[in-house]
Amino acid sequence: MTVLERGWLSANGILFAGPDAALVDTGYCTHADQTLALVRATLGPQPLARILNTHLHSDHCGGNAALQAAWPRVHTAVAPGQADLVRRWDAQALGYVATGQRCPRFRLDGVLAPGTQVQLGGRPWQIHAAPGHDPHAVLLFEPEARLLISADALWEKGFGVVFPELDGEDAFSEVGATLELIERLAPATVIPGHGPVFRDVAGALAAARARLQAFMQSPERHARHAAKVLLKFKLLEWQRIDEAGLLVWVAATPYMDRLRARHQPQATAADWVAGLVQELVAVGAARREAGLLHNG
Rank of each mutant, 00 (worst) to 15 (best):
V162S: 00
A204I: 07
E183T: 11
T189P: 07
S218C: 14
W155L: 13
F141N: 07
D170C: 03
Q217F: 02
K157R: 14
P219Y: 08
E169R: 15
L112F: 04
A151I: 01
A208L: 09
R107W: 07
R105K: 10
R123Q: 12
H128A: 06
R107E: 08
P192Y: 09
A227Y: 11
A177L: 11
R107A: 05
V162I: 13
E156Q: 15
E142F: 07
S173P: 01
G122A: 01
E156I: 02
T189A: 05
G132N: 11
D134H: 06
E142N: 06
A186E: 14
A113H: 09
A202L: 13
F141P: 05
P135Y: 09
R107N: 05
G160I: 02
F163P: 00
V118R: 10
T116W: 06
H133R: 07
I182Q: 14
A206C: 14
Q126R: 15
A207R: 14
A137D: 10
F159C: 07
H194L: 12
A188W: 01
D167R: 12
A226F: 04
L205A: 07
L139T: 07
P192F: 11
E144P: 00
T116K: 04
F141R: 13
P131M: 06
H222I: 04
F198T: 10
A171M: 04
P164H: 00
G121S: 08
R211I: 05
E156W: 02
G132C: 13
G115I: 12
A214P: 03
L166W: 02
L108N: 10
L108V: 05
A208M: 12
V111Q: 12
V111F: 08
P192G: 06
R146P: 03
A207D: 03
A206K: 12
I127C: 06
